[in-house]
Amino acid sequence: MPRASTILLVVCILGFVFLYAPILSLIIFSFNESKLVTVWGGFSTKWYRALLEDPQILGSAWISLKVAVVTATLSVVLGTLAAYVLTRFGRFRGRALLTGMSTAPLVMPDVITGLSLLLLFVSMEQLIGWPAGRGMTTIIIAHVTFCMAYVAVVVQSRLADMDESLEEAAMDLGARPVRVFFDVTVPVIAPALVAGWLLAFTLSLDDLVVASFVTGPGASTLPMVIFSKVRLGVSPDINALATIIIAIVALGVFIASWQMRRAARHG
């Protein structure tokens, strides 16, 4: 009988094959000459050229990037505030409600978040005339609402691990709380802020369902365009797009882990 550790290793390798095989096949077939996504017809970069000449994809990618940058930045501000309040302020009225509201978005199904925010925007427009119509602004508000919950989780664990005596020392030396926060707390939790920003950026860039509900005419995000193409059937240019995204992500993760390792050596 093989040893338990051998079985464990085999399961683990199979698990990683399972995770990466579909992604590898996307990359390989993005260089396929044939329009049939699954039959190899020779090496070609024509789908990349087709992608760069597609104004619909480029336009929606630009919209998605703008939405994601604004969303990530706002989410870091709001999520950090929520995390700071929950870890440092002790008891206050509404604490239980804030805890619930900042964790529930993590598991809330997209269809519910999307529908409920759309109905809110429609009702607000009827009542107070804002937001007038829907588009990028409403997508950003919706994305911030669920992304800040993710940022709050990341920052909260960092704040909980941080040595509070640093903040207390600054306070004892007469620094105002705001100053302590920006000069002592922020530098210590900076890695969590960066991680939170990247997480919110990715989640926003990735979202199809919520954006589909709360968007308006003229504001189609990249996932919405991809989805409508994929739904109609095979489109090799989507493989090319996927490969570009995977390359950017892999590069980003590589740089981040290299930076972290360097920081760990010097720290």
Binding site: L26, D206, I226, A242, I246, V249, V253
Partner: peptide, 10 residues
């Protein structure tokens, strides 16, 4: 970190 939609498409 790579698109959820594209992984389902894969």
């Amino acid at each position: 970190w790579t698109s959820f939609l594209l992984r389902v498409y894969a």
